[in-house]
């Protein structure tokens, strides 16, 4: 029998391994091992088709480090759709989830502004408090404008005090009337009065 040259094994198309990898990572998001889930979440950075899987994972993930990894990856998609899906969790009963989501939203200045009208009008005042937390850490030229609106208009004193806390680092002497107005709106709130009284000398440079 003569020598028969073996056929060279067919090379897989270059895109196949990557496709398989993405699929594997998406499945790996539900792995029982938290380390595997975290690896998958980080590995899916930049994989747009995995965004729905990552958003779904946020709602059910109980391991803090995995959830943080999922949110880190999702933060790379500063779109209204992703931010809106995350903002729902600001009302979560899970304190770890709502604070982690607030931190993530603070890194999404392109898309969060579009959500603000709804967030600032949320019937749950705790959601508005969390919104102040988002604004406190978000780099955006209009942050002060939104916080002033919260301080001047929000009907709940806890929201106003949260907004004041977020606003003070960027406030100047010209904002003294904004703070004084808050005290006038809530004259019986001891914390709000204390905060403004402590802040006013610093704003005017007399502290």
């Amino acid at each position: 029998m003569g020598l028969v040259r073996k056929q060279a094994p067919q090379q897989p198309e270059e895109v196949l391994p990557e496709k398989r990898s993405t699929e594997a990572l998406r499945e790996q998001l539900a792995d029982p091992d938290p380390d595997c889930r975290r690896e998958a979440a980080l590995g899916l950075e930049g994989v747009a088709e995995a965004v729905p899987d990552l958003l779904a994972r946020v709602a059910v993930e109980t391991e803090t480090n995995v959830r943080d990894a999922v949110l880190t990856t999702l933060s790379g998609y500063d779109t209204e759709q992703v931010a809106g899906s995350l903002a729902v969790h600001l009302a979560s009963d899970d304190a770890a989830l709502r604070t982690a989501v607030a931190e993530a939203l603070a890194t999404m200045p392109q898309s969060v502004p579009a959500l603000l009208p709804d967030l600032l009008a949320a019937p749950d005042h705790d959601v508005r408090v969390m919104t102040a937390m988002v604004l406190a850490d978000m780099t955006h030229p209009d942050t002060a404008v939104w916080l002033i609106r919260m301080i001047s208009e929000d009907p709940h004193p806890n929201v106003v005090t949260a907004a004041i806390d977020a606003f003070l680092p960027v406030a100047g002497p010209e904002h003294a009337s904004v703070l004084e107005g808050a005290v006038q709106r809530f004259p019986d709130d001891p914390f709000l009065r204390f905060t403004v009284q402590a802040a006013l000398p610093r704003l005017s440079g007399t502290a």
């Binding site: 009963d93 705790d126 806890n158 914390f191």
Partner: peptide, 27 residues
């Protein structure tokens, strides 16, 4: 905390807190 939803205090006590108050708390 600012949180005064049903169950917030229960969660605090389950975590090990002795007392749970809702802001604002007078001096």
């Amino acid at each position: 905390s600012t949180e005064d939803r049903p169950g917030d205090a229960d969660r605090a006590y389950a975590a090990g807190a002795n007392l749970y108050l809702v802001k604002p708390v007078s001096g």
